[in-house]
Design a protein around this nucleic acid. Structure first.
Length: 480
RNA sequence: GGCCCUGUAGUCUAGCGGUGAGGACGUCGGCCUUUCAAGCCGAAGAUCGCGGGUUCGAAUCCCGUCGGGGCUACCA
């Protein structure tokens, strides 16, 4: 039984890299019929952000990467929020002290800082000097009883080689004498990541730990902790980092990194997920379009790459467009509707929006492409693009448009095929190309020079709107 | 600095001793069309980081070297 987890710290939003990690875990659970669990790692109370857990879950739900068990959804091995598990960590830490694998440390931050400074000055790497490791037990007891601030540190044996059997990278070895004697319990009674994650992964019966590469170097500590507790460690897999354009770990400063930002820009969850999955993983053949369900069938850790991948916004947009074109009109209507609220435009009737979406055809890569870029479907144009006026509104245009208006008034059926025929007939009778009518009409109706097929668009707008806009343009556009 | 990971076109990648180094995004042409997209066709773009070796033959194996990244907290 596969049990995997996503264990973010609630810093306020879900990072796209976090979503990819969560997704890889989710895919593994789906593929194996296992369980995907969400655990909140909020052991740093200096970084608490109000509402962060809700935002995290909201983003996960939007993406469809929903936990089967965990924070907010519950389950048999909770609580799943670390700040609610303090007693457990306290007991576990005490256990390690008792068994001689950890010790109390009373060193002050000042002493630690000074020690580090000296080590650096000597060109050594900064590591705890084990000062309190050999403290007299009686003295330790006395200082504890006196309520002196302290932490609990783990002991690291000398001269051992600790090897992580990473599913993606193969065996990775570390020399134990280079591993620092990490703090396990902070002086405020909260555990550090290392203790909490190991304890929880064991207690929550996690079988595979799939996390970002930034954790690879602390894995030897985790391995040691499993050993001290006498527990079986899970399988580890460290996925490569997502990089910015300059090759560094993608962060806030590089633009949009929150899942919420992509949602607001009009990306589809399956588009984002498809793109993210391909960032570091490939199926081995040349397919690139996948729904989340399809990915669950083919994803494997063995095919995850080892090196970091640069986040390519252009490719994300392209893949999202692929998914846009795979959606039904009715689903698009539901998904697009909220975006009218975002820009403060009144919502159109669902039937009308459906027709707009159909007329737009393959022209949208984002949900928002059905809103902001095509205001003319929802309101008369307030101005006319200067370059297009210059290019398409010729000296003969007003007179041609007047004839066209007259023809439209008389047209029995305001349908695209009839409109098409009427326009071409008129053009022919005037001895001009159809473009002489088409382009000025588009300009008059939309204020811009491009867009969906003119006749289909006119049918959607309807006779009344078309005539009104044509007449307005005749008044507002130049007559030479 | 130390430890660890990593290195195929601008970007994402396939490759796993014998290929014209394949695909995708982007770029540039063409077709289609009333425009813009989409689609289709085509082009440019990679001394497979570099240097040695092993081999009849190396992107693929070995050694070295350089570059990039991560970690190095009472943060995760």
């Amino acid at each position: 039984m596969v049990r995997v987890r996503f264990a973010p710290s609630p810093t306020g939003y879900l990072h796209v890299g976090g979503l990819r990690t969560a997704f890889y875990n989710w895919l593994l659970a789906r593929r194996e019929g296992g369980t995907f669990l969400l655990r909140i790692e909020d052991t740093d109370r200096t970084r608490l952000v109000e509402g962060a857990v809700e935002a995290l879950l909201e983003a996960l739900n939007w993406a469809g990467v929903t936990p089967d068990e965990g924070a907010m959804v519950g389950g048999p091995l909770g609580p799943y929020v670390q700040s609610e598990r303090l007693e457990i960590y306290g007991e576990m830490a005490a256990r390690l002290v008792e068994s001689g694998h950890a010790y109390h440390c009373f060193c002050t931050p000042e002493r630690l800082a000074e020690m580090r400074e000296q080590q650096m000055a000597r060109g050594e790497s900064a590591m705890y000097d084990r000062h309190c490791r050999s403290l007299d037990p009686a003295e330790c007891k006395r200082r504890l009883a006196a309520g002196e601030p302290h932490v609990i540190r783990m002991k690291i044996p000398d001269g051992r080689t600790l090897t992580v059997e990473d599913q993606i990278r193969g065996p990775v070895s570390f020399d134990s004498s280079l591993v620092d004697e990490q703090v396990l319990m902070k002086s405020d009674g909260f555990p550090t990541y290392h203790l909490a994650a190991v304890v929880d992964d064991h207690l929550m019966e996690i079988t595979h730990v799939v996390r970002g590469e930034e954790w690879l170097s602390s894995t030897p500590k985790h391995l040691l902790l499993y050993e001290y507790f006498g527990w079986q460690p899970p399988v580890f897999a460290h996925v490569p980092l997502i990089l910015n354009a300059s090759g560094k770990k993608l962060s806030k400063r590089d633009g949009d990194v929150s899942v919420e930002a992509y949602r607001e820009k009009g990306y589809l969850p399956e588009g984002l997920l498809n793109f993210l999955a391909l960032l570091g993983w490939s199926p081995g053949d040349e397919r690139e379009f996948f729904t989340p369900q399809e990915l669950a069938g083919v994803f494997s850790l063995e095919r995850v790459r080892k090196s970091g991948a640069v986040f390519d916004f252009d490719k994300l947009l392209h893949i999202n467009g692929l998914h846009m074109r795979a959606q039904s009109t009715s689903r698009l209507v539901d998904l697009v509707m909220p975006f009218f609220d975002h820009v403060g435009w009144p919502r159109p009737e669902p039937e009308y929006l459906a027709r707009v979406i159909e007329v737009m055809g393959e022209r949208a890569n984002l949900l928002t492409d059905y809103v902001e870029p095509i205001p003319y479907f929802y309101a008369d144009p307030s101005e006319y693009e200067a370059a297009t006026v210059k290019k398409r509104w010729k000296a003969a245009s007003p007179e041609l448009m007047e004839a066209w208006v007259a023809r439209l008034e008389a047209l029995e059926e305001f349908r695209h095929d009839a409109l098409d025929e009427a326009l071409r007939t008129l053009a022919e009778s005037r001895g001009v190309g159809a473009g002489q009518l088409i382009h000025p009409t588009r300009l008059a109706l939309t204020g811009v020079g491009n867009g969906p097929g003119l006749f289909e668009m006119m049918e959607v707008l309807g006779r009344e709107v078309c005539l009104r806009r044509l007449r307005a343009a005749l008044e507002r556009l130049p007559r030479v």
